[in-house]
Design a protein around this nucleic acid. Structure first.
Lengths: 130, 130
DNA sequence: GTGGAAATGATAATCATTTCCATTTTTGTG
DNA sequence: CACAAAAATGGAAATGATTATCATTTCCAC
């Protein structure tokens, strides 16, 4: 009998990206992640970085959100669904619980007969330090 | 004595954009707004559309947010704040109230000492027709 | 009308992201 | 090991939104 081959596929590039994201901690754009890897001597291509990030997002291993200028930024996410409170000025981010949102989304969707419901919600403002 | 010349500057293009945004009601990207104006026979240039939108955003007459793909979308800001329930399949959109969200966003932001707070929240799923 | 400032819009430049495609690496199998 | 098929890779070109340039036009005060 074979070992399960249907667990999440994870190739070298995916692992590299995860490693960098773990190390850096916060959010980073694809370009930044690419530069970091290059600086460390890894010859990984930009294309591969984008590909890896996309597959990690698909597998819900990485969170994708947007800077104010629209650039995509990525971060490792825990397995618990959460939302973000983002500082418009310094980019600092706080993970917050969204119990109220979950309920709201569910209620609204049901009311209008929607199925397979998901939602996004972000709060942004200026943090106390800025 | 002169009339106040220091009130918000508002040129023809600005007014055109405001008019379209009023008429369409929801969100629209710069490109879409440009197309609408063109379709209506207005020869306005894309550059001018971007310029006008930017100045309206600066003057806090228009809100800027982002689609999921990062494209900038604009809407008149004011007290008609609402959220959307979007069908992933047919794109149909329902405007909904977000009372719970407003409260949630406010509470969370205060808890972490954020100022000048805004938020985005969208629900997506598959509508009853699809 | 005249001159200068503001507005306009076509075109080119920029920048993140995707697409293409040829090449390399990995993997499964005998 | 050898070999073929599949997956991964990365460079270059394409895309698409947004911004910068710059020559021309419109506005207005005098």
């Amino acid at each position: 009998m074979k070992m399960s081959t249907t667990t999440t596929r994870m190739n070298k590039s995916d692992l590299k990206l995860i490693a960098v994201l773990e190390r850096t901690g916060g959010f980073a754009s694809a370009q930044e992640l690419h530069q970091i890897l290059r600086r460390e001597g890894d010859g990984i291509g930009l294309t591969t970085v984008y590909r890896a990030l996309q597959s990690l997002v698909d597998d819900k291993i990485v969170d994708l959100l947007r800077r104010e200028d629209g650039e995509a930024i990525y971060r490792l996410c825990g397995d618990n669904h959460h939302h973000h409170l983002v500082c418009k000025s310094c980019g600092d981010t706080v993970e917050i619980e969204g119990g109220a949102i979950e309920k709201w989304a569910k209620t609204m969707a049901e009311e209008f007969g929607f199925r397979e419901v998901g939602h996004t919600a972000e709060i942004f403002g200026i943090c106390s330090k800025c």
